[in-house]
Amino acid sequence: MAENERLARLLLTSEIEAFFYEEADLLDLRRYSEWLELLHDDIHYWVPMLRNVKYGSHEQYEETPTKGGISWIDEGLTTLTQRVQQIETGIHWAEEPLSRISHLVTNLRVSKVEGGWEKPTAVDTRCRFLIYRNRVETETDFFVGKREDSLVRQGDNWKIIKRKVILDQNVLTAKNLTFFF
């Protein structure tokens, strides 16, 4: 691999990393409206459920399908915006008072690039997340899993156009999913 390309890879990975850290900050600092700005108008935001299936059939059956099936969450910008609006009513009891949330994002890899490493127009990424939620007094949840994101370049900015969240749980051990992954 040419030196230039190695450098370009490093720079791009670092740029995407910074983007995700900033995103995590917006969420954890409860700047939800600004977070919505990072989303593409056509975003597909999908959290399938994971089923216990026989060895060899994971690829086909482990995840609940987005086409014709039910997931934990499967939506676009309209519903995501409504989630933010609901929190902002101040009477959304599941998030009132607001939870204390921290997103840890790690193991980031840029798995696909369009337009070349130096002037990419779109990227696919993979990473791990750990979301800590603490609410009211002692209520505490940990959510751990994998995230597959697709970002596209719009002017000077990246926009998230696809987020697939593999939450490593079967029966959800938490009572709800009021936060954003």
């Binding site: 959304h92 599941a94 959800l172």
Partner: peptide, 18 residues
Amino acid sequence: YMRYSGPAGLTEQDDLEN
């Protein structure tokens, strides 16, 4: 169905909290 119901449903979350 998904935006209304279940643990991520905008309606049902408030029931579960109560």
